[in-house]
Write a protein that binds this DNA or RNA. Structure first.
Lengths: 209, 209
DNA sequence: TCGGTATTTAAACAAGCGTTTAAATTAATG
DNA sequence: CATTAATTTAAACGCTTGTTTAAATACCGA
């Protein structure tokens, strides 16, 4: 088993287990035994549990933000000015397609994104802001341009409302889907849900108050 | 120090610390030393840490759902049929006023509510559903009646979108508020934010897709 | 094939966790 | 006031945690 294998296997196991149980509730022993590697491998290859958590996020946030940046540039060169719907479509399309193309579960990333927000983990928030803050600022800036009539404070609160609706519902996708399937017998796929979320989020952002 | 004092002090300390750090990250030793009581007091009075967590939620969810039930009944007897805006106003008004009247911080309850959703804690979810599920069902049912034209699956997804926007943004209220204060110099109070959230949530629920 | 580096391994470490125990103290009851 | 019950206390329990150590093994360029 080469080094790359070990690092890879640890990241794969950690990603799944963190998404399922959270960071504190997942021990290094669970991760390493799931990955089939020695306990000390995490500290050897990553340094600490904190750095492993950051590495898990780096592995999916870097492709995600790169995809998003490309998609935004592509749309920006096509259209004169990006509208709210364009921006939301870019965001959700990249969340769905850009990540799924790696062959990994996009729902899991939503769940991790939710955890990053809610399980305070100061180091993780700092890591994400310093590494991916620029992409976020770009998206927020474009959205601001598309909504010039709203006063700035209201705009930013609505941005957080929108992020809340997105992250919260998608990070609990499996649980919510199970409830609806039981009550209505109708299965909801992730892209159907995003197709429902997009117009609702647009309405939230553009509401008249 | 009487028994009531001890129980009270433990609940007060646990409530604050849980809201700040989450359940797993808060030890009984931190709670009891903050409360100024002996370590064994938690197990003596509550049985276990899990039951303490449930007791913390019971102490604010019981008054909350009672207030909400009363408020819904009051509005229902006044108006013929409750509209979306009425229902959202009831919800947010009770969240703000009904809890604040106890002299305790409503933001903290939002934070705990967010934790209840995100920090899986199976026992807590079961506890809340079994104890307060009826109130939730009543509110959801009234909202459903107020939005008869939306297909049921879309309606329920939008309900979760709305809950996500609410819980997520309010449970991070202090953090978001600090960012906006730094960027715009404008302070946001909780009731101002709820006044912003209400129309945005209504637009989300009533959107045409 | 040899020598040095990189990696894996099993074991141990100290620290923190929730919980239990039994004795000491306080409160309540007859 | 004496006795019983309720509560508080300090100490210890067994267990899990993240991390470190030093020896064993694998790998790789010369």
């Amino acid at each position: 088993m080469s080094q790359l294998d070990t690092v890879h296997r640890i990241l794969d196991a950690a990603e799944v287990l963190f998404a399922e149980r959270g960071f504190t509730e997942t021990s290094l022993r669970t991760i390493t035994s799931t990955a089939g590697v020695n306990l000390a491998a995490v500290n050897y290859h990553f340094g600490s549990k904190k750095e492993l958590i950051q590495a898990v996020f780096e592995r999916f946030l870097t492709p995600f933000t790169e995809h998003l940046d490309r998609e935004l540039s592509r749309r920006a060169s096509a259209d004169q000015q990006l509208k709210v719907d364009d921006l939301l479509q870019s965001l959700y399309q990249v969340a769905l397609g850009g990540l799924a193309s790696d062959g990994r579960d996009p729902k899991r990333f939503m769940r991790l994104l939710g955890l990053a927000y809610t399980q305070s983990q100061g180091h993780l928030r700092r890591f994400i802001v310093s590494r991916y803050g620029a992409s976020y600022q770009r998206f927020a800036g474009l959205l601001r341009v598309a909504l010039p009539d709203i006063d700035p404070v209201t705009f930013y609160w609505r941005l957080y409302f929108m992020l809340g609706a997105t992250i919260f519902s998608l990070s609990s996708f499996d649980a919510i889907e199970a409830i609806l399937r039981e009550d209505f017998g109708a299965e909801s796929s992730l892209d159907e849900t995003l197709a429902r979320l997009a117009p609702a989020a647009a309405a939230l952002l553009t509401a008249q108050d």
